[in-house]
Design a protein around this nucleic acid. Structure first.
Lengths: 208, 208, 208, 208
DNA sequence: TATGAATGAGTTTTCATTCAT
DNA sequence: GATGAATGAAAACTCATTCAT
């Protein structure tokens, strides 16, 4: 019996030998994609299962019900957001201002690479209004982001790069607002302005 | 019940269509409220009808199907947004900067008075990603808003109040982004900052 | 409009114009029959609806779910049990002993006429072990039955027909037990003894 | 795990089939318990397997399907009923009347010790109405019981203890009916009378 | 033997929509 | 115009059974 286990591990079947976590992951990924594509409104277990290449009953083998998929989707998205994208110029982020620019750059790159991530996130934000289980995760994501920005701002103030009268916490929030606003506005008016056009304004807000 | 029928027949057509419009309006209002409360995901024709105090069949008498309600909802929301709220200090908006401040103020007031308007709008924004019929209306709303801000900015530049190197079109967009970002961020982090804290930043961006 | 109502009442359509209660009743009746025929184990909403001649969705229009049908079924059965069957010799039940004999007779007649009633009741009895909502109704049925028998026994004792040392309450219960036992035994061994063979034993228990 | 495989191969066939029987037995026992606890209506293969501590697939390795478990359950119950419980006073059952009393006593004791046996039996009785394979077993159980009682009654008549005009076959059936009735009545009205209260009535029926 | 994984065929329930009045 | 009743189509979920290992 233990031999067959070894055999299973050895063969790279990729269809049947996928283990529990991988199956779960593929179902979560399918759900995530469909949320971005069709919105929660049109999210169907059938579609999730078929995109993951399994029977609906299989979906229920891994997740008790549709709702049970959501925490997994949220986790997946948090992970996606925490993973830094391969930025065009990742090197040389020396000064805090550069690092803030770099963060804007990365966010733009991420949107370029994975726009569905931003759409799914927006869906989750709205859903969090009614589903209390989502809010904590989104809040935590915001907090991590906020902490990082606040750190950069404080650092920049210490170095004398940024205005001395800056409120790092408030400014961090404002930068987040700016970025969120950009992407949310983009949905309705995709051609209005380019993300990089915010750079000079950011500098104006930060520098003395 | 049969009396109203007789009465109605005796009345002219104008009255009948007014009644028709009222019914449609009340159904649209119910739909609008339920979209804000439960999201498109959980919008049900039965709920709409029962909130409007009519039978589901009646709903379908006035609207061929669920989708047909949406344009009405969008119209209602556009109207709501175009209607100025009773601002705390509506008088004395003299300078363009004051007027921009006043616009921010009004937006804050409107959110205070009708938060559901912002939630429903967010729902529509996301839905516009899949429903092409919504996008034009939202775009138009943005454009009106943009036009007004651009006008104020141009005016303020002419008066020398604002920086001479301002790009009115781009800055109008940025202000819109800032406001949208604020309210979208508010969903996840309702306690982060106060709307008025944006005022000084706005001035920093506009003034030289 | 009121005319059409009159029309509806006038025409004996029998299919569409059945009113709420009648529809509910027909669904309950179908459920009752199917419980007797197939047991709770194989009770299916589809079957109930189709036997009642309606769509499954119609079933759910009248009953929120399958469980919601059960109280109605119980009520129906209580009503059936409370309704006296057209007994062969209903007249001349003078003495309490005669009346007890008549009661046995009626029960036998009822079984002859509606054996499914006894089967469905047995199903309910077993179900009441797990479903607390059923127990009260069955208990009440037992109590009514018990009260009637106890009255007859007390009456017969007063008249001197029955043994003076009889405990009317206990004996009433024992008679019920005898009847229940007969019918429950009948399921497994339908040919063992005839119901009337209990008569002499009953007399032996009651008379001095 | 692979060790047991090796060991098992080394052992003789007799041991292997003992293991097989144990597994079957534990699955049957689990099924039996669950029938008593939840009724046939809610009997699930998964529950049976998990209570027996095995995988569902293992259940199907030993039993082709759910129905195949039932004969085993019936056998188990017959065995349980045939096994005399450790009665409080098992000694000194001399006279037939005493033996009949003792039988009542044993039945009461058995219910005290294993009420689930009576519930499961009731479930089987109802099921036997639709499942022809069950009926023979239950009938046989009744017959054994009946034979034993009839023997005691005949014996008692020969000894002159019981009434001379007794029909042993009919009276045996009536005693069975009384006992069945008692336990079936008990489901709905658990507090009505005590089992021992039937003793005097039994004597009245048997003695002259 | 044993099992984790998978699934076909149901089963209940939901919901937008239609129909007769 | 309005509605109670009804329904087709689909949705979520269940469950006995099978399969590969």
């Amino acid at each position: 019996m233990h031999e067959t286990h070894i055999t299973r591990r050895e063969r790279g079947d990729g269809t049947r030998s996928i283990h529990r976590d991988e199956r779960r992951r593929s179902l979560i990924l399918a759900a995530y994609q469909l949320i971005a594509e069709k919105g929660f409104e049109h999210l169907r277990t059938r579609d999730i299962a078929s995109r993951a290449g399994v029977n609906i009953a299989t979906l229920h083998y891994y997740f008790a019900n549709k709702e049970d998929l959501i925490p997994g989707v949220v986790d997946h998205m948090l992970h996606e957001f925490r993973t830094f994208p391969d930025s065009a110029d990742e090197m040389g982020e020396t000064s805090p201002l550069d690092q803030i620019h770099a963060m804007f750059q990365r966010t733009g790159d991420r949107f370029q690479a994975k726009p569905e991530l931003f759409i799914a996130l927006s869906e989750l934000v709205l859903r969090s209004l009614r589903d209390a289980t989502i809010q904590p995760a989104l809040q935590q994501l915001d907090e991590e982001w906020h902490r990082y920005l606040q750190y950069l701002l404080t650092d920049g103030m210490r170095q004398g790069t940024f205005r001395a009268d800056l409120d790092p916490a408030a400014m961090a929030t404002k930068l987040i607002i700016l970025i969120k606003g950009f992407f949310f506005h983009r949905v309705t008016s995709p051609d209005s302005i380019d993300f990089h056009q915010l750079d000079t304004d950011v500098e104006r807000l930060l520098l003395s």
